[in-house]
Write a protein that binds this DNA or RNA. Structure first.
Lengths: 241, 241
DNA sequence: CAGTGGTCTAGACCACGAA
DNA sequence: TCGTGGTCTAGACCACTGT
């Protein structure tokens, strides 16, 4: 086994044993190189491995630190964004920025409208532990968004969108979701504060009403190592038949 | 911008322009180092970037090659494994290995049985383009698996499991699926022929019958950059009501 | 300013694959 | 056996952070 792997194992062990705790700064790279009698490049590769695993976090100019073990946030398939992990008591804050946009090609395809159609866009940034962990763009046809704001009196969030649509007389017939894992764009990497090599989980969701029109579309980007997605489907033929 | 990034851009450009085509071998690392007047380590880092992007593939002892752009395979939520991308004409082969196992803790939790319970396990390896792209472990309670083999006469695959269960009188009430992205275990990396730093998409699925018992459980592991997962839910209240 | 991680070099040896 | 990528070194300079 390569030496950098052994160093990674050794530091992993130190963390597991509690010799290094969450938030602690690791020895500097020259110190580690000296300690293991290896070149600095070799211990750097070990740290890269640990960073890819999400065990540590490196900051240019500051040092390397033991990371809080990533608690997975659960995304549950439902109308409106739903991100929660109920039992850990950590607050999740959301920042919402509503606006209206002209649909570019990808959004137009998602919403099944002509490119250039005007849509209401809700941009959400979800924070947790003072770190961003999710970007959500939710699109609603303009005529529906007016009904939404009128009925709720403020910018809706999550399940409120669902209820608002219902109150506005929209009957949702089907929700389709597409889940993909990929490398983040540069923007996404910065917004979500992602390490090099990290992936994001992308969920594209459309809610179709009983007229076959797309009533809501969502584009969610989340850090791949901090989310789990749960789908639960009741089958068409219930037990009673 | 760092020099290795510029080299990566340059090679990316060569591929985009068709100077390098799918399957072509790249110049060797010493050649590239010479060509760009950089050290070998620097061009190696450029190649690492391209490999992480899935653009090239490196083979120890053979060379680096332009990779076929990863066609995403679509996993559609359904009973039984369903992996297909209909319109590309590339054959998907499956190798099945049935056996019976004693449930370890994670499997026992998936199937909601006591640890140590005997279960039928079907291990599938899905191949495509002569490369493995999916590992599936499907678990069925032993009494159901006997019914299955009896009714189909051979080892069932995919939708056959669903039909077989139905024929055996099992009424499925709900399917739950959990999707997670993570780094592969060493075994998984080898079986799926994954590059360093690649992630896998894991789907854990359980099908529950109308008695609340788990009739089928599945643990699917797929290369994160070659799958997309699609869920479609008809809502509880159809349009007609 | 001092201390940290990020990039880069020139050279060496090793491990693997194919002929 | 030979050519390939994988690992490693000792040293250098740069870029960022906090004081």
């Amino acid at each position: 086994m390569a030496r950098y792997q052994r160093v990674a194992d050794s530091i992993r062990e130190r963390i597991a044993q509690g010799l290094l705790s969450v938030g602690d700064q690791l020895p500097t790279e020259p110190e580690l190189a000296n300690e293991y009698a290896l070149s600095r490049l070799t211990v750097r590769r070990a740290l890269d491995v640990l960073q890819a695993e999400g065990l540590i976090e490196k900051f240019h100019g500051r040092g390397s630190f033991v990371r809080r073990p990533p608690r997975r946030v659960t995304y549950v398939s439902r109308c409106g964004v739903q991100l929660d992990q109920p039992t850990d008591g950590v607050e999740i804050e959301n920042y919402v920025k509503p606006s209206s946009v002209l649909a570019e090609a990808p959004v137009a395809s998602l919403m099944q409208v002509e490119p250039g159609t005007e849509l209401a866009e809700y941009l959400y940034i979800a924070m947790r532990d003072r770190e961003p962990y999710g970007l959500a763009r939710i699109y609603v046809p303009l005529e529906l968004s007016n009904l939404l704001t009128a009925s709720t009196g403020h910018v809706p969030w999550g399940a409120e969108i669902c209820q608002g649509l219902k109150a506005a007389g929209v009957r949702l017939a089907r929700i389709s979701e597409r889940v993909v894992s990929r490398l983040p764009s540069q923007d996404e990497a910065e917004s979500l504060n992602l390490a090099a090599g990290a992936t994001v989980l992308v969920i594209e969701r459309t809610a179709v009403d009983d007229q076959g029109r797309v009533a809501e579309g969502a584009h969610l980007v989340m850090p791949g190592d901090r989310v789990e997605v749960v789908f639960s489907t009741a089958l068409a033929e219930p037990a009673g038949r």
